[in-house]
Design a protein around this nucleic acid. Structure first.
Lengths: 191, 191, 191, 191
DNA sequence: TATGAATGAGTATTCATTCAT
DNA sequence: AATGAATGAATACTCATTCAT
């Protein structure tokens, strides 16, 4: 008789939002942004198109929420890679990257695709620039401790390498020698 | 009013095709595949939509022709980088890459964008895989001559580096330190 | 936790209904019928959409109630214009009209807008016809007392004049010379 | 074998455009702007929705074209009402108005409805203001020749009267005494 | 009485493609 | 070879209305 409590509603809302975001993530990662219609997302999530617009003002807003969520998830990982020994930590970073590549390729794929739609998603530019600087800074710190002659240049190389391997493994799929790359990089930089 | 000879016709066809492909390249490079309509391409090329469909079975077929042509154009460049001295040739390769990045970003941008539409353009997968192997093979040859301990691994790194720098400079635009990267890479690998 | 008495309930119902109608009036007067959504009305009234549908069977029914209420409100005004002297009373009518125009344009705007949706709101036709006859009858009575040669024709003119000034001041907004019109009409008919 | 001549195309375009505008006019006059969908217009015109957008950039643009066309049609009429004798000319104006009301009510209905959507169609405001001034000026000229004491005030009254009769006859339809009004007005002003 | 999550039919608009000429 | 009028399926988005609680 009485309306749902606000706690119940909060739960329902959170669940629906999550369902929609998961469906969107899955489909966009698989088919790309343009080839994924709002109708497909709603269907995959098992909700109506109308409901989707109850939670996200537009397809773009949904994608923005997606990216933000993925980003903050990524952040929380960095902490776990810390180690007093820079060589060990660098190894952790490499290993984390290769695990990501193997297991959460989607994640990276979406971000990168949106880069090509920079007119529509200009917030991506800012986020990515900032993230890139963070990563380069982190690597530079490690390489400095390891007495590299040009830690900044080398850090930039490693950062570019990560993206390069990402895109190449997207292009050639299972033909990309992730294992060999991992082994070689760790030997080269961490021993 | 006599009918055109088949030779004349052949010329006309070739010219129209070229105009269309150039227009398509220009617009897609600038605005992306999905944001470039067939109508826009026809207008830019100065022909009718109908004519476009006389030469290309579909928008996809046009894009495929585009990629193929761009690829074979790239091939012809390689010859000019040849040099008996592997260090000099590697330097040529690096310099060529940075010139490309600065002056013909478009070219690379199109190929990479299509990678994200792999369901539609699966021929890209084959082409890119083959090209990648060629480049890696070329680099591997040079590095072997230069007595690198693991020429294949290092060749793969350089190849990934190229794509990585490409995508990062696309992402962060003018903030990307192309000059510093060029200087550092040449110092690192060619001196 | 004892159940509310039916009297209390009646009060609550009346208050909620009033809040909703006021909100609807305000928004529709400002933005028009089609541009005012049920969601907006509920929000403005501070109630849920569900409650709104407890009191009104549909958006159309709500609007119908609105118009009915506005009409009966207008009725109660007429009494205040009464005067034994027909010239004075006619002047009162004119002055009342111009005050309405300046201060409650909304009211008249809603009615008139709905006229254009006569398929949806055919009850408007009946109401307006009846009201028009009432007003014309009132004016005719006054003009008869003032020995006009054709009191009915002149009453119809005045009635049309009122609507005409209403719509023209809606069309040209602040450019409409309400003051001059008022002055001229009173001089013409009441002196 | 050869493409259609530009003259043929011009004809085809003109015909299609006309069909669409006529269909739009008919439906909007009958059902109003908001209740007339682009799909309905296309269907009524016997063309596809796509074609409609070949000729008009948007539903709003179509309506704007409609209004403009109706306006310029109205202009051409004025010339025919001219007469050296002001009383005769004023009579012509009255008679023209009543013919319009009886035969082209639609025309006026559309313009007036759009006035209520002034946020979307602000060009209507300018047009209507200008037209109103023209008409008032014309009437004022005639009334001056006829030695009316306040020609401007009386001209404004007549202009308002026209709109007022228009809206009232829209409201009460066949119950509106157009004939009596015509007779009375002509007697009042032209004899 | 009261809530607001959920629905789905509806809207304007776009665009690759066809085809009569 | 060449045109561009015409199509129709698809797209993102809106909103009055329902219903479980």
């Amino acid at each position: 008789m009485s309306p749902k409590t606000s706690i119940q509603n909060e739960q329902i809302r959170a669940e629906s939002k999550l369902k929609i975001m998961e469906a969107a993530f899955k489909l966009i990662a698989k088919n790309g942004y343009d080839s994924t219609s709002v109708a497909m997302i709603a269907k995959e999530a098992g909700v109506s198109k109308g409901l989707l617009y109850n939670y996200f003002a537009s397809k773009e807003a949904l994608v923005e929420a997606l990216v933000m969520s993925a980003m903050s998830e990524a952040d929380s990982v960095i902490g776990k890679l810390m180690d007093a020994n820079p060589k060990v930590m660098l190894k952790n970073v490499f290993q984390w990257f290769f695990i990501e590549m193997r297991e959460h390729h989607d994640h990276w794929r979406i971000i990168t695709e949106l880069t090509f739609k920079i007119d529509k998603f200009d917030f991506v530019h800012n986020i990515v620039t900032q993230k890139l600087n963070e990563y380069v800074g982190l690597l530079q710190g490690l390489l400095t401790q390891m007495d590299y002659p040009n830690p900044l240049g080398e850090a930039r190389i490693i950062a570019a390498l990560f993206d390069g391997m990402g895109i190449q493994s997207l292009m050639v799929r299972e033909d990309y020698p992730l294992n060999e790359m991992e082994e070689y990089l760790i030997k080269k930089y961490c021993e």
